[in-house]
């Protein structure tokens, strides 16, 4: 193990480490703690200049205010309406492409694979104008469906990379044996490969959920009204309206951050497995 385990060092070093951990964490999460504290600070505190001290009372009413006086409930709903179909659509498509590229050897395999990989790295701006045009022409501009369709297509690139590598690492004998038995190819996919892909599917669902929930660029390009905007774009426009109402901005930020945070803590193992794929050989 690197560095040397702290347990093998003297008591002084151990005590120092135990103190350094929480101190470093508090410094690291300072902006977050500040915002969390501000979100429960009564407006009167801010008016009186009490920005850092303990709040004079815990004002959960800020959260109630945000829900009552802004369309944030609607924004959250829109975010789900974009995110969930994207997760499902992307997984369906990438299970199939990953299977095709991971199991079969055919001409163009590597070429198609690297097409998906390269597409991932492209800057969004080179896609922006044509994608907006396509969406307008399909009559899906300013709709959650239009946004989800684009996300499905784009995320398929990343997920194909992931799925193909995952399937490629499965034991080939399984598939060969089934073929010898005369099992149809689509049955091999459905009954043999798909059940083995559960960990990959779990990892990708949390990752794609977080990426899409947090997307801001495409939300601003493809949606414009409160009835369709996801929470990232919504929060940005609320920020424009709530000038200096930091207790509301903070409460709104915390609300917007909650779903992916919850997802992360519930599915931590899968999340990190997905994110660090390729970090070890």
């Amino acid at each position: 193990m690197f560095p040397r385990p702290i347990a093998t060092r003297g008591p002084g070093a151990r005590a120092l480490y135990q103190i350094a951990l929480p101190v470093a964490l508090i410094i690291w999460l300072f902006p977050l703690l500040g915002v969390a504290l501000t979100s429960v600070r009564p407006a009167s505190d801010l008016a009186a200049g009490n920005y850092f001290g303990m709040p004079s009372s815990i004002a959960f009413s800020n959260y109630v205010d945000v829900f009552q006086n802004s369309p944030i409930g609607r924004y959250i709903l829109n975010s789900f309406k974009v995110t969930i179909p994207t997760v499902i659509g992307t997984l369906v498509l990438s299970c199939m492409t990953g299977f095709a590229l991971g199991v079969y050897r055919f001409r163009g395999n590597i070429l198609i694979f690297f097409l998906f990989v390269a597409g991932n790295f492209v800057p969004f701006q080179i896609l922006m104008i044509p994608v907006r045009d396509i969406t307008v022409q399909m009559g899906l501009y300013n709709s959650t469906a239009g946004l989800a369709l684009f996300h499905i297509a784009f995320q398929t690139g990343f997920c194909t990379l992931f799925m193909r590598n995952f399937i490629g690492a499965l034991p080939r004998e399984l598939i060969e044996a089934a073929r010898v038995e005369g099992v149809a190819e689509w049955r091999i996919f459905w009954f043999i490969v798909l059940p083995l892909m559960r960990p990959a599917i779990a990892a990708l669902s949390v990752l794609v959920f977080t990426f899409i929930w947090n997307d801001f660029f495409w939300a601003t390009v493809l949606t414009t009204s409160a009835s369709t905007q996801p929470v990232t774009a919504g929060l940005s426009s609320l920020n424009g309206q709530w000038i200096a109402a930091w207790h509301l901005v903070s409460a709104g930020s915390i609300i917007a951050a909650l779903p992916p945070v919850a997802m992360f803590f519930l599915m931590q193992k899968h999340f990190i497995a997905g994110l660090t794929m390729g970090a070890v050989k």
Binding site: M96, A100, Y104, N109, A153, F154, T156
Partner: peptide
């Protein structure tokens, strides 16, 4: 493999490659 690739490739071509 081509049948499995088609839906993903069509989406990717329409929304990423062609743009």
């Amino acid at each position: 493999p081509w049948l499995f690739l088609t839906p993903g490739l069509i989406m990717f071509a329409l929304y990423v490659v062609w743009p």
